[in-house]
Design a binder for these strands. Sequence first.
DNA 1: TGTGGACTTCAAGCGCACTCGAAGTCCAGG
DNA 2: CCTGGACTTCGAGTGCGCTTGAAGTCCACA
Lengths: 159, 159
Amino acid sequence: MPPQHDRLTIGELAARSGLAASALRYYEELGLIASSRTTGGQRRYHRAMLRRVAFVRAAQRVGLSLDEAGQALARLPEDRAPTAAQWAPVARAWQRRIDEQIAELQLLRRKLGGCVGCGCLSLKRCALYNPDDTAADHGPGARWLLGDTPPEPEPPTTA
Amino acid sequence: MPPQHDRLTIGELAARSGLAASALRYYEELGLIASSRTTGGQRRYHRAMLRRVAFVRAAQRVGLSLDEAGQALARLPEDRAPTAAQWAPVARAWQRRIDEQIAELQLLRRKLGGCVGCGCLSLKRCALYNPDDTAADHGPGARWLLGDTPPEPEPPTTA
DNA sequence: TGTGGACTTCAAGCGCACTCGAAGTCCAGG
DNA sequence: CCTGGACTTCGAGTGCGCTTGAAGTCCACA
């Protein structure tokens, strides 16, 4: 357990955050975290940066880009833990976002269910392909952020 | 309603699939779709390609890469609609995949709920940041190796 | 037959979130 | 004081899923 003080080297921050040092430099370049420097020019990070890094990683899990994470970060204290009052709106916004993603996935799942016995995959008729949401994305994994997914009771494989 | 025959130009396929012509050329380059050529060298797509494109787009919505979509495509008929027997396992695999995504989001959501009144975002203690699930997350190869770090008592609103 | 809009290829570029490598510098432990 | 491992910067590269542009060709309609 070598270093216990406030000024973490980039290697220490990397080890404790699970990120690569290169990623931390990148985050710093983007303004997500900040460092002071030794006289020799090496970075030293305040412990508070641990929390900021944690926040960014959490934001990514919610599906935010680093840019968006930075926006959210800007509304929280620089070097203290946020109060419940500061954190709550962020957490709630993220929850809404997650709820939307879940809702969309559930819709897709339901449509897939309707397609199981069908297989048509017609561009015109297949509910699976014809998302009434047009929120196209370009990335696999996450990014469906349509605002209002209509409930849409749907007879199997028809549009 | 100009063309009604089987041989769609790339522009027609683009219009009907909602994809850009450049994307279709890209798909063809990847082997996801195929075309014949006119004597002049222009692409003509069989109508069955509409279904293949639909399939690929659907796969993307499920979170598959184009490569994975191609793998799945290879197990379906080239130019006919898949039978229910052919389609069902694919659809079920996709549903499982969606279920996993939903489960992960729900877990994240729950953790966020626990964090609303907390705001600590401690790397050590915050459930939000410490995913006990080692979820698929396209992380940069770095693992969260925080498990073995000493507990380190951290009073609220301090770090 | 003329024409202009749709098509062709090929190479390069983009956006994101990083990673890698080279060449050089720093600094803590012995 | 020495040393070697950790750090520095900078530029380039990666992977995915495309888009854009240049330069040239085709073909359906009048």
